[in-house]
Nucleic acid binder design. Structure first.
Lengths: 250, 250
DNA sequence: CGCCATTTGTCCGTATGTATA
DNA sequence: TTATACATACGGACAAATGGC
């Protein structure tokens, strides 16, 4: 906000036990090279291993669980397992910060209108062979969609944007772009749910994909921008008031 | 990665109490429009307000505290206080996801080369009055820097990019841009530590600021891109091998 | 300086819910 | 259906830190 002071904040994080234990657990996971899904010691075992109380340990587990680094399930055969850190989880964390910053939904949409064309251009300029196959696969999904239900339609359309993000060849933009998409779709179940738009969206996607495959960066960017603007336009019409709504953590 | 499956994983977040309470607390903070530093109810009061046990409440507080959204201090006059949306904290979280995705440092630099000019253009096109004053303040810092030490120099240069991010007028890009900067500066203490570059950097910043103040978006974008490319170039020379290093969590 | 009040930090014991066999 | 293993949640107690007197 104001930031009048030159940031002298001695954020002397008092090093609470819970957080220290969380760090230790994470360190142990990394050291042992455990993969997502791998079982971790049970709560009772960790209690012994780290020599803290239940309350403290549970604080640590919550921190890690919230960041998707592990998952805890009750019941027999349950317990903590290593989690997969995916864009969905990252999107949730990002939404947390957005809510705190009173970021409005319109800003999120605007960010996507900016980022998606940008990634489309990069995708066209690079055309990584392996990833182009993913794009081809996505387009195949697009064509064989006619008879499917609404849920499938949405899944296919969403996956398209994920593929383009991956095609950008930049892991940072990829992560960011996917996270935005996750936040977006979490709130807006379907901006283009209206069947009369389906065919349009499909054509727009195909046009973008063609431009990418041709290596025409400028065209891919232009087409994707038009597509995103159309999407934003319909969103504005179908979800009046959403524009000024503060993004919420879910 | 492969994502062959249509993401059927029913990530059925079991809705644990601690997380629900955390969400509620955050919602209350936003609803009441509390600013950083404002006092929140004490643990005892929250216990009553949310009707949960202490352990559960403390899990919620830890989640929020870990993300810097609030701070808790013990002792008389202590208790929870509202924190700031801290790009540094967010950057740390983001770096964690990058590490998991084996993102290389070069990709981070590239993302900045792309994002910074983009934000400069937006800044010029919008020219929010209040934030332009921050820019003016930053430029004042730039000019009165001659005699200062290295730490001050770096702080001033870093702050410039933060101000431009804020000027973009988009909270999402702002958060993202600042987080990238945080991750970058955490690893690269100083790409332009070499004093012979100082004067150049200062001139480049001033040129960008002038374009923004003039409302010339295209020029601001062009100048910022040139600046970032020069920075990336020097980075490549001074930190050989960094390009292919995987971004690490700290 | 010491004392005291306030508030969080940490621990323990127990009961309840949940998933597997 | 019952039993077992595990996390989830509650309540009470004491220790430690902070700030005012």
């Amino acid at each position: 906000m104001s930031e009048t002071q030159p940031t002298p904040r001695f954020r002397q994080r008092a090093a609470k036990m819970g957080e220290l234990v969380a760090r230790q657990i994470l360190e142990d996971i990394v050291e042992q090279g455990l993969s997502p899904g791998a079982a971790l010691p049970t709560e009772a075992q960790m209690l012994q291993a780290y020599g803290v109380s239940r309350g403290t340990l549970r604080e640590a587990l919550r921190i890690l669980e919230h960041n998707g680094l592990l998952q805890v399930r009750p019941g027999r055969g349950g317990g903590p397992i290593v989690g997969a850190v995916d864009p969905h989880t990252f999107g949730r964390t990002m939404a947390l910060f957005m809510q705190m910053g009173r970021t409005r939904f319109g800003e999120l949409v605007e960010a996507r209108v900016i980022m998606e064309p940008l990634m489309a251009r990069l995708a066209a300029e690079r055309r990584d062979a392996a990833r182009l196959r993913e794009l081809a696969e996505s387009m195949r999904e697009h064509s064989t969609l006619e008879e499917r239900d609404e849920a499938s339609y949405l899944a296919v359309m969403q996956r398209f944007h994920g593929v383009v993000a991956g095609l950008s060849g930049n892991g940072v933009l990829d992560l960011f772009g996917r996270a935005l998409k996750e936040i977006y779709t979490e709130r807006v179940v379907a901006a283009e749910r209206r069947p009369e738009r389906w065919e349009d969206v499909r054509r727009e996607h195909q046009a973008v994909a063609a431009a990418i495959a041709d290596g025409d960066g400028a065209e891919a960017e232009r087409l994707m921008r038009a597509h995103m603007l159309a999407l934003a336009d319909h969103l504005e019409r179908d979800y009046a008031g959403l524009h000024d709504e503060v993004v919420g953590w879910w």
